[in-house]
Design a protein around this nucleic acid. Structure first.
Lengths: 187, 187
DNA sequence: GATAATAGTGAACAATGTGTACGGTAACGT
DNA sequence: ACGTTACCGTACACATTGTTCACTATTATC
């Protein structure tokens, strides 16, 4: 990809992330984004059809690489699926978040976190669906499969929300224990 | 209140609710609302400062009366706090929802349900905080109070989301059991 | 039923934001 | 050095917002 394209794309994302931590999505205008990114109006629209598409692209940028199932290693970072200990996916996720790749913590703590947490939940659901060891618990037989998946994912995402909302005072290990306690599985 | 005011307010709410079940909030314009409500532009702004204030008013209309703690009876409907069996608040809430007061089910099932479920969660939190019997479980001692409250409320709200997302095939009694199973309390 | 207060009408408006078009300029990969 | 590609900036048509105002209709109250 052309270096210029990369640069402007990064500038747009950077400006957008900054604005997202300052105000609500609906209050952010394209004019503000291009001013802060210091690019021309036409350039913005050459990259993103609308503001909504930019938001979608940002979400994909943030989550899809975290949950990328291809399994290849980049930047010394193993993808979730490639971890040696599949049982501690949740711990890995918390550690991953604590590293604050892609300034994701800022976004998860900001006013618009709903948006990102929803995206998070969707991606996480796909991941959990493929983990049979999560469905051996006694509860599982009493409850519909999709209910249990939804409960697991939303409990995890809500744990993340609580964690970042409380300044992440717990270590990834501690918060993982909280999560397991909440869903009633003793790790 | 003047009959005219009541009528236009109802017309605005009705039009807004209709539009909400058709498209996203951000895609709804004031022009559409007044066209469907068949009122003048100035009239709309005489009632609501902006579209966001209308949304807020709608949420309050929907939830505050459900969670109203004043305890008085209106329209043959007992408020949550006034129920004889405080242990089954959750069952009462599901029954309340199933009755579809204020067309709330349509809104909880629509594209914008995030919005209403968040509001729901906020109000429910306040209610649960005041119910000491929910904090006697063994889990509670292991976990921070606010974590447990957040877990309870979000599990309930997510159960509602799952329920309405699956066409409410379960009776209020059944779905209440699911909820208790999820949080690990045997009722 | 007459009256004053209140609410709604509809059109017009400035202000702001959106998305597109275009000729000119600068940076890119090869 | 070359053709290609991306960016610039200005301008534009268009939609939406929120306000104003003179006028009309409805209301509660006497």
């Amino acid at each position: 990809m052309d270096r210029r394209q990369r640069k402007t794309k990064e500038a747009i994302f950077k400006a957008f992330i900054e604005l997202l931590s300052e105000k609500n999505v609906s209050q952010i205008t394209v004019g503000e984004i291009i001013k802060r990114a210091d690019i021309g109006r036409a350039t913005f629209y050459a990259h993103f059809e609308t503001k909504d598409f930019l938001l979608k692209a940002l979400c994909e940028e943030l989550f899809c690489h975290i949950f990328d199932a291809t399994g290849h290693v980049e930047n010394n970072h193993r993808h979730i699926f490639n971890c040696n200990a599949p049982d501690s996916v949740f711990l890995h996720l918390f550690q991953h978040l604590a590293n604050n790749d892609n300034q994701i913590l800022e976004l998860l703590a900001c006013e618009n976190n709903d948006l990102f947490l929803r995206y998070f939940k969707t991606e996480l659901s796909k991941l959990l669906e493929a983990m049979p060891e999560l469905f051996t618990h006694s509860k599982t037989s009493e409850l519909p499969h999709s209910f249990w998946v939804n409960h697991l994912t939303s409990t995890f995402v809500e744990t993340v929300r609580w964690w970042v909302g409380h300044k992440r005072e717990q270590s990834p290990e501690e918060i993982t224990k909280f999560f397991y306690a909440a869903i009633g599985i003793i790790q």
